[in-house]
């Protein structure tokens, strides 16, 4: 399937969704006033990907900041990944956070407890 690449801006993250590689990456800042518009193509892409996922999907989430408007859309992204996981495909989620950023670590733990796929928490030093 076609890949989805979006360049990062001051308020929206860089996106790299590569279906052939089974690679899902979101990096940077996610603080738009209205996140629905930005995340809709991401969730749509994942919806398609859930039909023919790779047996192994690698997910890298590396956010510097995200606002509460984005937090719901990010949960939608994770819910699609949960669907893939439930259909017996491997989904490895890496949640990156900056050194000492306990808020970002906790945010990862919140998602992990909601979607029930183990996260690998990686501190960037």
């Amino acid at each position: 399937m076609e890949s989805l690449f979006i360049e990062g801006t001051a308020k929206t993250p860089a996106v790299r969704f590569d279906g052939d590689q089974g690679l899902i990456e979101i990096k940077g800042r996610s603080i738009p006033e209205n996140s629905i518009e930005f995340y809709k193509p991401l969730v749509d892409w994942l919806e398609k990907y859930t039909n023919t996922p790779k047996s192994q999907t690698k997910v890298n989430i590396q956010l510097e900041y995200f606002n509460t408007s984005s937090s719901k859309c990010i949960l939608d992204v994770f819910k699609k990944l949960e669907t893939i996981h439930k259909s017996n495909n491997e989904v490895a989620i890496n949640w990156y956070y900056e050194e000492d950023d306990e808020d970002m670590l906790e945010a990862g733990e919140d998602y992990e407890s909601i979607i029930r796929i183990p996260f690998k928490m990686i501190e960037i030093v």
Partner: peptide
Amino acid sequence: YKFILNHQKLTAKGGGGL
């Protein structure tokens, strides 16, 4: 926070009550 995150829908303007 987790309850609202998981149960409440975003408004058209993108607000989420969070």
